[in-house]
Design a protein around this nucleic acid. Structure first.
Length: 1066
RNA sequence: GGGCCUAUAGCUCAGUUGGUUAGAGCGCACGCCUGAUAAGCGUGAGGUCAGUAGUUCAACUCUACUUAGGCCCA
């Protein structure tokens, strides 16, 4: 027996049952183990961080991951799915700081780094339960029992191994990094934190004159909004191709202007900033200025390198300022990069509280921002201040304490990624990006502009940088495994060697985090101690190392790693382009000289339904748990992937999930229920031999052909990682082809016909369709698909698999695809539509039989085509005859140009020829139609038009009602003869009886007896159709008698009638 | 400032190598159908295919620019 489902199905309950079934029977585990020995399809899970609650975008990302892993499993691959957790980094620290009430980084030391990190280690799992619940409820199959965790010792040891690889090839170096820094909290901020605190503020905007060394009385005009950085000025930058001018300032006395002998250099496009009159002395490009030296403004510091000359930089613009940019490498990223390029000195006279050091004698001890006014005063006194005003702009502030942030050069460790960026670009070409423009554009450009990776972080909770250095930084040692720590000497709290050494037994209890590793030192041959550099590494290195670190490679699992690198598939949000996608690629390229992944599916943001970004402050976030319990995971998943291509932004509208459920899911369930209802009545269990497709009826062959076409398309889309097209194709087939055409057209075969070959064929055909749909839907809607698969399979035992997720996808049966049959059916569907439209317009309901329709056809081929679908059309539109007319005496044709053909032949002449064709007389149309060619004259030139140059469509048929869709024209005979009227009564009457049966709650197999009372005309019609009526309504008796107004009153095509039905007990 | 993406009906989206009636769903109005139907089907209203210029016999489609929005980077 097939389990009967109703459309009142509670999807969440079904899903919970399926979850239990999966868990009790270890279906996920089996879906992996049952593919032992099969080719691997490698998937890498990008580790989420579990100290934030999961949101709807996580459901999206995980649906994609899950769908393709299931798809590949059902295609015969073995797909291991190891979960992972990203557990280090600033977000965790901030969470813990809040928890224990710390505001300042230094307080962590007071609190105790050990205690602090212990708290971090626990805080990491704050929302683990939520993540696990979400993962389970949404049906994301991933092995949560054996995840990789970035703070685990094995994971960290693998990272150390990788870092030593870098180190030993001289790929790690110390440098400066310009970081946003809060002078009050004394901590650098991440870009994420910076974004939180932009405020509009007024800063001084000053133009300064910088005196050229070798031109008399000539100054560069330089603009800055941070006067305090002028102390550290080391160069000026110009754009090489921008026009610059040298001007002489003029004084005016009355009408007269006099030269002052004072010259300024600035960008030509910025002349407007000059407040007095001037005359242009000369004009030149920026590159002509390169190398020109000028006098230092402030001489507090001695430097070795050459500075104070003009360099080129392409970020210089003429949007504001003077087109000449002051360079202070310690305080700006652009400045720093340029100064590295030209080997300029770096002057950093500011302490960690943001105050000038003593060396800056005039301003020492002042907070730099507060020193601005004094510096301006100083410049003014020296007559090198040209102009000063206020400047309103958006400037970042600390999100915790509101102090203006400073951009600071800080000591930092770098990975020299620029050394192999060309190789990254080459290897990127091997990666299949979906969509490809992310790979070529966003990611490609990022690689083109690659900068060295700032690896270190001055924080506490993270993977320690395994480098030990001497106090003078001259000696270094990089540790690439925990064993290499053996022999290191323990230090006490004050950093004094204790004489105790790290031994083999210490390996067992080692916590490779701070502060433990900081207590170890290596003694060098000349007696110096190497101590660990205090920094951690960027958490992005953690996640980028997961291909090998998840396996503790190379210390263990060499074979596993070798067979599982690179990944076949990864999928994350577009925000990972410069995050995980990059770090995987960068580390992979360097260590293994291979891309880390072959296919990467990028998904875009999910916005709310008005296109606004979802955020907690706006309150427009969507809670995945609520959705899943309300609609079920299947509908949510299906909605997310089918709504819009996943690599475009999705506007999330909850109503859409309801629609998916109502339309697709309930139609599918209804179709299944219909099947189950009659299959149970007829005890169909697919035990009969499969009827060859060739021996089935045409409509069976049609749906099987369409189904195979669908399977083919589906696999193509899935192999292109296009879930949107795949899901839409399934939906369209299920709704249009299967439910609204095949099942509707074939209902009678299930409930009427005797058992036999045709009925069996119908059951087998519908079963095969359902079976295939369920399998194709399984990757996206894993619950309902499994429920239906199991229901189908329990009854038929067609497959040995206990779950659809263990089964194989249907194969495409090419020989079952019959394109001409599909075209024919498409034609029939369109004709039926046209006839329905005409019935509509003349108010003739489909139950009223009509005499005939007439369809003009061009030739014998079309005639035969039409005849082959005649039966379907007649039955569907309730008409007695299809007349396929070839003769044209009563049909008026319209002719129009076939531009596609004509355009190639005539080029510029096309429009004129087309106009000529439009003017054809009916005789000319007939001539070209019968003779295949005709000569016309266009602009006095003879032109031969052949049949392929034109399209001829019937437009009107004399005396008939006509409807056309531009290709096919159908005429309908609307006359209702007495015989047709009688038949119409009978059809209408049957319909009423069926409704009554249904309303009375009768089973479809119950027998009834009917009594009715009505006028003579209707009674006569019913009498004549007695057999038909009894047969259709399963009634044993049909009698006319006086019901005295006590029964149901009906209007049968204008005739009043009373009807009563009674169930007959057998 | 740079890179990438997007712009088609009130809303969400299709639209093939350029070819002459630009489609679907939702919503709205009206009607029909129904022993699988809380469903479905049909009809109707609703489009300067963001704008401008260009290429072409022909542009929603190709090119350039502009405008608006989004994401990323500076």
């Amino acid at each position: 027996m097939f389990k009967e489902l109703t459309d009142k199905i509670n999807y969440s309950e079904v899903e919970e049952e399926i979850l239990k079934f999966w868990e009790e029977n270890k279906i996920f585990e089996e879906s992996v183990s049952s593919r032992n020995g099969k080719p691997l399809y490698t998937f890498y899970e990008g580790p989420p961080t579990a100290n934030g609650r999961p949101g709807i975008h996580h459901v999206m990302a995980r649906t994609l991951k899950d769908a393709f892993c299931r798809y590949k499993t059902m295609s015969g691959f073995q797909v291991h799915r190891k979960a992972g957790w990203d557990t280090h980094g600033l977000p965790v620290e901030i969470e813990v700081e809040k928890q224990i009430g710390i505001k300042h980084k230094d307080e962590i030391i007071e609190y105790g780094v050990e205690k602090f990190n212990k708290a971090c280690r626990e805080s990491v799992w704050k929302y683990k339960v939520d993540w696990e619940t979400m993962t389970r409820e949404m049906g994301y199959w991933v092995d949560l029992n054996d995840p990789y965790v970035t703070f685990h010792n094995n994971y960290i040891e693998s990272i150390w191994w990788a870092l030593k690889k870098y180190y030993s090839k001289d790929m790690i170096y110390r440098g400066y990094k310009i970081q946003p820094y809060c002078p009050r909290c004394e901590t650098p901020l991440s870009s994420h934190e910076v974004a939180l605190g932009y405020k509009d503020v007024k800063d001084p905007s000053v133009y300064i004159k910088m005196k050229l060394k070798d031109e008399v009385n000539t100054h560069f005009l330089v603009w800055t909004t941070t006067p305090w950085t002028l102390i550290s000025n080391v160069a000026l930058a110009v754009h090489p191709t921008i026009d610059y001018v040298k001007v002489e300032l003029l004084t005016s006395e009355g009408e007269e202007t006099k030269p002052t002998g004072e010259f300024l250099i600035l960008a030509k496009a910025r002349l407007e900033i000059l407040k007095e009159k001037y005359s242009i002395v000369s004009e030149f490009k920026g590159k002509d200025l390169l190398g020109k030296e000028y006098e230092r403004l402030f001489n507090y510091h001695e430097v070795k390198e050459k500075g104070w000359y003009v360099v080129e930089a392409d970020f210089v613009t003429t949007d504001d300022g003077s087109g000449i940019v002051h360079m202070a490498p310690a305080y700006g990223e652009d400045d720093y990069q340029i100064c590295r390029k030209f080997n300029l000195p770096t002057i950093h006279p500011v302490n960690k509280s943001g105050e000038f050091e003593d060396a800056v004698t005039d301003f020492k001890g002042k907070f730099v921002k507060d020193a601005d006014a004094d510096i301006i005063q100083n410049l003014k006194a020296r007559n090198i201040l040209y102009r000063k005003e206020a400047y309103l702009h958006s400037y970042p502030h600390c999100w915790r304490c509101s102090s203006p942030l400073l951009y600071y050069a800080r000591d930092s460790w770098y990975i020299r990624t620029t050394a192999y960026s060309q190789r990254m670009i080459e290897l990127n070409k091997q990666i299949n990006w979906i969509p490809k423009e992310v790979g070529e554009g966003r990611f490609g450009n990022w690689l083109e502009e690659n900068k060295d990776w700032a690896l270190s972080r001055d924080r506490y909770w993270g993977t320690p940088l395994p480098i030990w250095v001497s106090d003078d930084m001259k000696e270094m040692k990089c540790v690439g495994s925990f064993e290499e720590l053996i022999g290191a000497e323990w230090l006490d709290e004050n950093g004094i060697p204790t004489g105790k050494f790290f031994g083999k037994e210490d390996l067992k209890t080692l916590d490779p985090h701070k502060p433990t590793v900081d207590k170890l030192a290596f003694k060098t041959v000349n007696g110096k101690y190497l101590k660990r550099t205090p920094e951690l590494i960027d958490v992005w290195f953690d996640s980028g190392a997961m291909p090998f670190a998840q396996w503790h490679y190379p210390f263990e699992n060499k074979e596993i790693f070798d067979s599982a690198y690179p990944a076949d598939f990864i999928s994350e949000g577009i925000d990972q382009t410069r995050g995980w996608f990059y770090t995987l690629h960068s580390i992979g390229t360097f260590l293994f000289d291979k891309p880390a992944y072959k296919n990467v599916l990028v998904n875009e943001l999910i916005l709310d339904k008005t296109g606004q970004k979802m955020s907690k402050t706006k309150g427009n976030t969507v809670d995945p748990f609520t959705l899943i319990s309300k609609y079920g995971a299947d509908a949510t998943r299906w909605y997310l992937v089918s709504q819009s291509p996943v690599w475009r932004t999705t506007l999330f509208d909850e109503d859409g999930i309801g629609e998916v459920q109502r339309k697709f899911f309930s139609t599918l369930v209804n179709t299944y229920s219909f099947f189950a209802l009659y299959a149970n009545i007829d005890a169909f269990d697919f035990s009969e031999p499969v009827i060859p497709i060739a021996e089935r009826s045409e409509i069976d062959r049609w749906i099987i052909s369409s189904l195979n076409t669908l399977v083919k398309e589906y696999k193509q889309y899935m192999n292109e990682y296009d879930l949107t097209k795949a899901s839409r194709a399934i939906t369209d087939f299920t709704l249009d082809n299967l439910s609204n055409w095949y099942v509707r057209r074939n209902r009678r075969r299930f409930w009427k016909s005797e058992k036999g070959k045709d009925k069996t064929a119908a059951y087998q055909t519908l079963y095969e369709c359902l079976d295939a749909i369920v399998k194709m839907a399984a990757p996206i809607a894993p619950f309902l698909a499994d429920e239906m698969f199991r229901n189908l399979n329990t009854a038929t035992k067609k497959e040995k698999f206990s779950s659809v997720h263990l089964a194989m996808l249907p194969e495409v049966n090419e020989s079952a695809i019959d394109p001409s049959l599909e075209t024919r059916m498409d034609r029939a569907i369109r004709i039926v539509g046209l006839v329905r439209a005409m019935r509509m317009k003349s108010n003739l309901k489909v139950r009223q039989p009509l005499k005939k329709i007439l369809i003009p056809v061009k030739d014998q081929t079309e005639y035969l085509l039409l005849k082959s679908i005649e039966g379907i059309i007649l039955d569907e539109v309730n008409v007695k005859e299809v007349d396929a007319k070839i003769d044209q005496d009563i049909i008026k044709y319209k002719i129009k140009a076939n531009f596609r053909v004509l355009g190639q032949k005539y080029g510029k002449f096309t429009a004129k020829v087309a106009e000529g064709i439009k003017q054809f007389t009916p005789i000319q149309i007939t001539k070209i139609n019968t003779e295949g060619r005709i000569e016309i004259v266009v602009e006095e030139k003879p032109v031969i038009i052949v049949l392929e140059d034109v399209e001829i469509i019937a437009e009107e048929i004399k005396g008939w009602m006509v409807e056309s869709d531009g290709k096919i024209t159908v005429a309908l005979d609307t006359e209702i003869t007495p015989e047709l009227r009688i038949e119409g009564f009978a059809r209408e009457f049957v319909s009423r009886i069926q409704n009554l049966r249904k309303d009375s709650g009768l089973e479809v197999t119950d027998r009834i007896s009917i009594a009715y009372s009505c006028g003579d005309q209707l009674a006569e019609a019913l009498y004549k159709s007695t057999e038909y009526i009894k047969n259709e309504t399963l009634s044993v008796e049909l009698t006319r008698k006086n019901l005295n107004g006590n029964a149901v009153k009906e209007d049968i095509n204008g005739e009043q009638c009373e009807i009563s039905i009674t169930k007959v007990l057998n």
